[in-house]
């Protein structure tokens, strides 16, 4: 896989400068809202509370997620690995 950030245009996008331990890094989080079914697994599994569940009237179960604070991200990839709907990309 390439190192290039590859987030499609229809994805919502958050960028931040982060610190993992003492190492400085940057993170780009991509989120495909249209594909998201609002299960909330990302918000539940994230150890750093990067995600939060928000109301979304257009979704059948009435919720989606968004990033509240990308600077907390430690790139553990838990949300990306466990999103069942291919909606999260972390670079």
């Amino acid at each position: 896989m390439s190192n290039k950030i590859n987030i499609p245009e229809n994805y919502e996008r958050w960028e931040a400068e982060i610190k993992i331990g003492k190492k400085e890094d940057t993170v780009t989080i991509g989120y495909w809202r249209d594909g998201c079914k609002g299960c909330g697994i990302c918000a539940d599994i994230c150890p750093k509370k990067v995600w939060e569940i928000i109301e979304a009237k257009d979704k059948w179960n009435g919720q989606v997620v968004r990033v509240i604070d990308a600077t907390n991200c430690i790139k553990c990839m838990l949300c990306e690995v466990h999103c069942p709907d291919f909606c999260i990309k972390i670079y």
């Binding site: 079914k37 299960c39 999103c83 069942p84």
Partner: peptide, 8 residues
Amino acid sequence: CPGCGIGV
């Protein structure tokens, strides 16, 4: 379904 384990 939303959250289904099969996707994982």
